[in-house]
Design a protein around this nucleic acid. Sequence first.
RNA 1: GGGGAGUUAGCUCAGAUGGUAGAGCAGUGGACUUUUAAUCCAUUUGUCGCGGGUUCGAUCCCCGCACUCCCUACCA
Length: 516
Amino acid sequence: MTEQVNPEASVDAPHIDENHVIAERRDKLKAMRDQAKLTNSAVFPNDFKPEHKAAALHAQYDNFDKETLDPQAIPVSIAGRMVLKRVMGKASFATIQDATGRIQLFVNKENLADANSEAIYESFKHWDLGDIVGATGALFKTKTGELSVKVSTLRLLTKSLRPLPEKYHGLQDQEIKYRQRYVDLITSEDTRNTFKARSQVMAAVRGFMTNNSFLEVETPMLHPIPGGASAKPFSTHHNALDMQMFLRIAPELYLKRLIVGGFERVFEINRSFRNEGLSVRHNPEFTMMEFYAAYTDYHWLMDYTEQCIRAAVIAVHGTAVITYDGKEVDLSQPFERLTIVGAIQKYAPQYTLAQLNDATFLRAEILKHGSKPFDHAGLGALQLALFEETAESQLWQPTYIIDYPVEVSPLARASDANTEITERFELFITGREMANGFSELNDAEDQAARFHAQMKAKEAGDDEAMYYDADFIRALEYGMPPTGGCGIGLDRLVMLITDSPSIRDVILFPHMRAES
RNA sequence: GGGGAGUUAGCUCAGAUGGUAGAGCAGUGGACUUUUAAUCCAUUUGUCGCGGGUUCGAUCCCCGCACUCCCUACCA
């Protein structure tokens, strides 16, 4: 805790966004401080302990009729932020909001128990929307049937110095919603519900994993060698060790070390960091679950991932058929599985199979779509590029794409039937990549060779190519059992489940440029 | 990185074809003892994002910049 400072002194300190409304509230607070000095009482008291919550009271008493409820005079104590206020001479209504919902207070001078009721009522009239209040009283129903608290004691617990957004339209400015999430949360039930759903998703996923004998682990966020994905890392420096470190781009290589160590099923839910562009589906730090299971392969992973996602959707919605951006997404049926070429044939049928196996044709076609030309791409990588240009965005219903080429999958096990492709899949829903998994490469010598190839690519200018991780190779040399591993982008899963158009809508404090 | 849209009172938004701006909410004063975005009367508040240019005069036209949103690119 910080040291106590003289509040009188801080009043003169520079403040941002000051305006006359705030100045008036500061004046009110100053008057409160002066008054508190006289009566030796606290301006910001912390001794009021509410015993009830708005939603629970509504759940319990909304269906009571007035004749039954009023005579019981059920005593309650409740606290929250005052969000609406209607003063009518000698009687007033105020609506307060707590973590669970809203409830109406009926404040009438004659009902106030305090000997000083006249003064309390007069000061209440000058409290502001946004102030935190505590009240005790008896439950009753108004003549329109709304459950309310007939207030007998009323206290201002926290003075609010800043005006709330417009009480009907709320906060509309998207920038302020992201930058000042606290205001967004006060104002928007939609926003509150989105983050409650996010919490439910996390709990459902975690529960699904532990129920299937997975061990939750935490591996380093600071990596001496960034690995496990093709991405540009954030770089930092550790002073005591005097070494460069990177914020992790993926936990993969550490989790596989744990499989080597004998934990046969592990998962981690945590942040990864990628120093790349921001978009409606990319935040520099994002939350991913990666999980690894020994003696499984990518077929098992697809079945399992599907069940996990379905469980998360049902945990929030109670059904696996939901709506995203106005269109239905059906997660109740087995997810479709298509090869890269198969997906192109289905969603871009203008191409013949001969064309899809013609590297020269593919190269020209990809250039036509405005994608960057790449010199060393093999047939598989060219097919993948065309898939991304033509088919990917159309994969609205859950679809697994399989048979990724070895050259873009340096950590995946090659297919026994075709050494050019790997036992790998990516899951797409609403045209977005949601998950990526594969049978893990557990041949230490093959992995070492693939790392060497990545180093060559890096020397040739590919700054997203992987580094050679000698300790990871050493771990594989001890022997890693055959293993399946998968990463699920949880922010994107929450986007899907909460029908959110932007990843920023599911991250409490998304990164923004510095305020000027 | 490239393209498009936006930025007016604390909040939600109008607005003028160039003559320095309004409404509602919030605030303030008043009326009102069952309101529901309470109502009624009165009333305060603005570097019209920032910097240049054109002009007698720019919040409006032109140029540049900043920030936001959307699309696009890299990626999950």
